[in-house]
């Protein structure tokens, strides 16, 4: 296949419809940035929940050696843990539960405060200093008194943390921001789809003579549609690149430089979450332009 024609058509097409392409790119840029923010916020909520428990979770600290609670006589024993597990399992308010080991607790603390403090000859804490814990997920956030009173007096239990009231506004605002971003993105996505559709209609109209002759002399459908698909792909890639840049700037200047240092009681999204968000928009962007292009080229360029 001669690609020279395809690429010269691609260049011509991009230039001919420049204003439309700019409109598509800008709409994609803003909508993909918002989608990316939604993805980041979603991950932020998960991250906070992994440390503080979700809106349905309460944490039962188990006794460790040298526990602050005088009721503890030493590290919780396996027999005590089994007794606690049995009470938890039989309680009707409990949907699910799992134990967390000292090592898991240590990993979380390291992630929150940074690993530097825990290295070298004089670490701030070691895994041995961490308590074991039991994470209980409730069926109903309002039904928790039965299980807390049942567990609190058991041997081997040091205390119960129910941070849900404190965390409620935090989760609430993360949630609101997430859905606000995704909802606004949804409108812009519709605008982007319509813009792409219009761009293709204009391009197909501008090239109707060429397309008519190509069909007549037996050019394959793929060959006819290829300049359109490449145009769609190019605009999508520019939109994705801009959105990834925007999200990167938000991560660096917003999260890393402003929030992270001041609000360090929860772990914040970082590089790996940014990568997830960029992958999400890198998949979504081309779909948003290629899908209407495929549908409409079938309609306008039918052999």
């Amino acid at each position: 296949m001669q690609l020279r024609y395809v690429f010269s058509e691609l260049g011509q097409g991009l230039r001919r419809n420049l204003t439309m392409h700019v409109a598509v790119v800008l709409t994609l840029f803003v909508s993909l940035t918002l989608v990316g923010l939604g993805v980041l916020l979603n991950q932020q909520a998960d991250k906070a929940a992994s440390y503080w428990g979700s809106q349905l979770q309460i944490t039962v600290w188990l006794c460790k050696e040298k526990d602050d609670n005088p009721a503890c006589t030493g590290e919780v024993t396996d027999a005590q843990k089994q007794a606690i597990e049995k009470v938890t399992k039989d309680n009707p308010e409990v949907a699910d539960y799992h134990f967390e080991s000292k090592e898991q607790a240590f990993e979380k603390v390291k992630e929150l405060l940074g690993p530097d403090k825990f290295q070298g000859p004089n670490p701030a804490a070691t895994a041995a200093d961490m308590p074991q814990s039991l994470w209980i997920t409730l069926k109903d956030p309002d039904q928790y008194k039965g299980i807390t009173s049942a567990v609190v007096g058991l041997d081997g239990v040091s205390g119960i943390r129910d941070a849900r009231q404190t965390l409620k506004p935090l989760y609430g605002s993360i949630n609101a921001l997430q859905w606000g971003a995704l909802g606004t993105a949804a409108f812009l996505v519709i605008a982007a789809l319509l813009l792409v559709a219009n761009t293709i209609r204009l391009a197909a109209f501008a090239r109707r003579r060429e397309i008519g002759i190509m069909r007549l002399v037996g050019a394959s459908t793929v060959y006819i549609a290829l300049p359109f698909l490449l145009e769609a792909l190019v605009t999508a890639l520019i939109g994705v690149t801009l959105a990834a840049g925007g999200l990167g700037a938000f991560m660096y200047f917003g999260v890393h430089q402003r929030i992270e240092g001041k609000l360090n009681f929860i772990p914040w999204v970082g590089g790996s979450e940014y990568v997830v968000a960029v992958i999400a928009i890198a998949i979504l962007g081309p779909i948003l332009t290629l899908l209407p292009t495929l549908v409409l080229t079938r309609k306008y360029l039918k052999v």
Binding site: M1, Q2, E210, I213, V217, G218, A219, S220, Y223, I224
Partner: peptide
């Protein structure tokens, strides 16, 4: 053009 678009060399 008629030859180009059907991929002739």
């Amino acid at each position: 053009f008629a030859l180009q678009v059907i991929g002739r060399s």
